[in-house]
């Protein structure tokens, strides 16, 4: 285990440097290629490699600045990472238990299969973009205030806060992950229940519930961890949309604000657009998140499934 972790950490460091350099090069080239004379001149005045070295030094010294946020950039970034983490954890806390319970409830024992209502629910859930659910929720909240019985909004639809502000974004963000987890829990459990060892357990006199809990589910946990990891990847993609919709000042919104010009148009660009230090730092942060997640998943799998050790 220790050797595994040591090898992993080395890989993480190398991958982080690669990610931040990749992000920096991308933003530098994209920006100077965008046809803006200010940036074109900065390209000549400030070649790529020295600029990157300066960026790394500033990052190390904690004095990193950006065009748009100035010397408040690092604190903006810290707050954004914190806000995104809160939202992510909240969405996971909703979708994992809910998906698990839904998935188990959707398993039919005889004949073994997935119940129709779960299929319908998960199919629709997976086909619904989060921003659509979110827009509907926002519209419902506002319409209930304007035309409905309430004189103040039930749940806030804009801004950050670890209070009622968190409810709508977290719920909206967890719609698709819940559907995905429920679908996989049901399919995986059904797959296990058709195996001979379950028949043997039933023959031994166990009820379906006992056979499921004691035997089948133990074989479901390991693949389920992988499914959750995949779900996390999906959540991070959706994070941009949900944060954008709810004005949640997280990493997704920071990234979107960097990648999308202030006014999407045929016009020129503004100062914060594709700022290399911002892009490089966010990309590195996202990479760090995925790598940590991957490590945790790999470690958990080794704990849950003894076969994994022999595979490596």
């Amino acid at each position: 285990m220790l050797r595994f972790l040591a090898r992993r950490s080395l890989f993480v460091v190398v991958a982080l440097v690669a990610a931040s350099f990749g992000g920096f090069v991308y933003a530098y080239l994209a920006r100077t290629g965008a046809g803006n004379p200010l940036f074109a001149q900065s390209r000549a005045a400030d070649p790529l490699l020295p600029a990157y070295v300066r960026y790394v030094q500033a990052l190390g010294a904690g004095t990193l600045t950006s065009d748009k946020y100035g010397d408040t950039f690092l604190s903006v970034l810290g707050q954004a990472a914190w806000a995104s983490l809160i939202l992510l954890v909240a969405a996971l806390l909703v979708s994992i238990p809910l998906g698990f319970v839904l998935g188990l409830a959707g398993v039919r024992k005889e004949p073994t299969g997935v119940r129709g209502w779960l299929l319908a629910l998960t199919s629709i859930g997976l086909a619904t973009p989060s921003f659509f659910v979110g827009s509907l929720a926002v519209a419902a909240m506002l319409i209930l205030v304007v035309y409905g019985p309430w004189d103040q909004i039930l749940l806030p639809v804009q801004g950050f806060g670890i209070d009622a502000h968190l409810v709508l974004p977290a719920l909206v963000l967890s719609v698709r992950p819940t559907a995905q987890i429920a679908q996989f829990v049901a399919t995986l459990t059904v797959g296990e229940l058709t195996k001979p060892y379950v028949t043997a357990a039933r023959g031994k006199g166990l009820t379906w519930g006992q056979a499921t809990r004691r035997h089948a589910l133990r074989n479901v946990y390991a693949p389920l961890v992988q499914v959750i990891a995949r779900t996390l990847r999906m959540i991070v993609g959706e994070l941009i949309l949900v944060e954008w919709l709810f004005g949640w000042p997280g990493l997704g919104m920071l990234l979107a604000a960097t990648l999308i010009p202030a006014r999407v148009s045929a016009y020129g660009v503004e100062s914060g657009f594709l700022d290399p230090p911002v892009v490089a730092t966010i990309v590195a942060l996202l990479a760090l998140f995925f790598l940590l997640m991957d490590t945790v998943v790999a470690a958990t799998l080794r704990g849950l499934d003894p076969r994994q050790k022999h595979l490596q």
């Binding site: 080239l29 990847r233 993609g237 949309l241 990648l259 594709l274």
Partner: peptide
């Protein structure tokens, strides 16, 4: 590893 939406935004910006 990278969400397709992020890549699409980056490419369109490029």
């Amino acid at each position: 590893l990278v969400p397709v939406l992020v890549v699409a935004l980056a490419v369109i910006a490029f």
